[in-house]
Design a protein around this nucleic acid. Structure first.
Lengths: 232, 232
DNA sequence: GGACGCAAAAATGTATACAATCCTGAATTC
DNA sequence: GAATTCAGGATTGTATACATTTTTGCGTCC
């Protein structure tokens, strides 16, 4: 009896359950980019057959959290430097406009929710759980997209944020501390006040800050992909 | 022997093959929105097991070409009016910027390819194959996204164009004839000349034209969803 | 000692069998 | 006659068995 299933006597896991659980673990940096995700292993962990696991992995591969290569199985994706730039450029194109729209649609309940996310994030940092803080930070962005009432664009942003989590795992430079300390707060204020232009600008500069806090020099690429290669 | 497999003695279809074939048929309006896609039926048509068919359907559901509801199977998606607006608003946000970028990256080979797409599209219209013309028209847009060398955004645009095909099937009004007669040509000229600003503007107005050629009044929604309901 | 090759083992791809759910339609009831 | 109930069939969900491919590790050869 090596491993038991993750939770005892819970409703049997569906592929959505598993995809969600894996997604969370990846967001929180509990599973590193490049990690092999064996089907049998996951099937045993969640107490289901490989059929269900494969469906979950396919879902995750579609949002590029997981890389599936034929006959070679699934592993957590490791975005290249080029992809990292692309993801942040896409965010810089989509999110400011979305923040503008959110400023026009935000209700009091929306603002309250965003503020709770921020305080949860601070709590996670206080608990020395940076992975969870990062996840909540991403949730803040997806929440804004939802408030903007553009489900289609919100879906895109969701996948971009998921990939951003991988990018941060690979390329974040420690030196650049929490430059975003107040960015989310200021954004909420602009949204609450309905200041569309202000919200758009704040979001743009916030994303530029994030982008520039990454070490995306070519030199580093080789180092990191080498580490990946050794990691397995 | 009722149905035989689609092509005799071809390499066995993979889920990608099937997803591509179905996607093409939907793009070309050979399968109408709302059509039920039974697993056994498709499995027999393509000469594979349901396992492979299910993977293909899942792929298509990720890009919202197909709607899968638990225990209820898959059918071709029928976007609502709200979704239709969202899709075109997203395109209006993404594609003009992409066209700008394409103008800066386009090579002679790229331009030649685009021009061939246009002439193919005209040929299809001459052959009285409007479905294929529509498909090629969409391909023109995805090709521009590819030229822009932003794979991430190109992926988003690809799904938006796929959904646009469904939207056109549901909401296109015949009265508004080919207003876009020269739009693609002008766009290619701007791209070939490297006129970024011009390309961006042309793409924007082209998309606005398309958007306004749809009948997205609420009244029509009920009519069409009723037809859907009766269609099965 | 290192490179090559091959067989065994492990993992993924696909098909099939079985279980659970939904849909259909005829019989029943009011 | 209309609504309801409840089999029976049809369809989807999941597990398992088998086929194919990749990986691994040992042995051989140079």
């Amino acid at each position: 009896m090596s491993h038991s299933t993750v939770s005892t006597s819970s409703p049997p896991a569906t592929s959505d359950t598993i995809a969600h659980a894996l997604s969370l673990a990846i967001h929180e940096h509990k599973i590193a980019p490049g990690t092999k995700l064996g089907e049998d292993e996951l099937a045993e962990i969640y107490g289901v057959s490989r059929t269900v696991v494969r469906a979950a992995l396919q879902t995750l591969s579609h949002i590029k959290l997981v890389d599936i290569r034929r006959n070679r199985g699934a592993s957590v994706a490791s975005p290249t430097i080029t992809e990292a730039h692309e993801v942040f450029e896409a965010r810089e194109l989509l999110e400011p406009r979305t923040a503008r729209s959110a400023a026009l649609h935000a209700t009091a309940a929306d603002i309250a929710l965003l503020e709770r996310h921020i305080s949860d994030e601070h709590q996670a940092l206080a608990d020395a759980d940076p992975g969870r803080a990062l996840y909540l930070s991403g949730l803040f962005h997806t929440e804004i997209a939802r408030i903007a009432q553009q489900a289609t664009i919100a879906g895109f942003i969701e996948t971009l944020i998921a990939r951003s989590s991988l990018i941060i795992a690979l390329y974040w430079r420690r030196e650049s501390a929490l430059c975003e300390k107040h960015a989310h707060h200021e954004l909420v204020h602009a949204l609450a006040a309905g200041q569309a232009q202000q919200a758009e600008e704040l979001m743009r500069s916030h994303l530029v800050d994030l982008h520039s806090a990454l070490d995306l020099r070519e030199r580093n690429s080789r180092t990191l992909s080498l580490r990946d290669a050794l990691a397995r």
